[in-house]
């Protein structure tokens, strides 16, 4: 595969995001984060450092959390990408609300995504694993206790992804959380 020749010429790529195929024009050096935000209007992923340090831009790619500032958009071709916009009514989101697990909200999509990915991969993670995953992100407002409580309430509740069939479809073309969330 070879893409792009002339510098600053845009190319058209297809990405699979939240279950939909989208087509967009990009520069080869564009980060997935910028394409999501600037081209596709998916501004839930936030720029916090563009350096892979803060996790505010975390999305899920192929069932794994991924910092979208550390990915060229071109690398994401043919991969399954879920952004916070593709997550609707997940249990973790409800528990974030119930436990006041956010304040300014800027890091929240990243924390929701990394938590959701964790629960997809392991509905009953041990403490060490929780620390390992969640320490990929930075929250400057809370003392993390609220986020911890939100996550553990899902773990204890045993409904890791909140993706029972009844929760599936929501309006406005937003896609089927069960597809993005269900683990093989």
């Amino acid at each position: 595969m070879k893409i792009s020749k002339d510098t600053y010429q845009k190319i058209t790529i297809k990405l699979k995001i939240n279950g939909e195929i989208v087509e967009t024009d990009i520069h080869v050096s564009d980060l997935l984060l910028n394409v999501l935000r600037d081209k596709l209007g998916l501004t839930g992923a936030k720029p916090g450092c563009l350096n892979g340090d803060c996790g505010a831009c975390t999305v899920i790619m192929n069932q794994k959390p991924m910092k979208s500032c550390l990915l060229l958009a071109i690398e994401a071709i043919r991969e399954e990408i879920t952004t916070i916009e593709g997550l609707l009514n997940s249990t973790i989101q409800k528990e974030f609300v119930n436990h006041f697990a956010f304040q300014c909200g800027y890091c929240t999509p990243g924390f929701v995504m990394v938590s959701h990915a964790l629960l997809m991969n392991d509905p009953n993670p041990d403490k060490k694993t929780v620390i390992e995953w969640l320490s990929s992100n930075i929250c400057r407002c809370t003392g993390y206790q609220e986020i911890e409580k939100a996550l553990y309430s899902v773990i204890k509740g045993g409904n890791a992804c909140g993706l029972k069939p009844k929760n599936t479809v929501k309006s406005n073309g937003a896609k089927k959380t069960d597809e993005t969330g269900r683990l093989n």
Binding site: I3, K5, S29, L31
Partner: peptide, 11 residues
């Protein structure tokens, strides 16, 4: 944002 552009090959 990377300000320069480049070609991308995936052999």
């Amino acid at each position: 944002m990377i300000s320069f552009d480049f070609e991308y090959y995936r052999p």
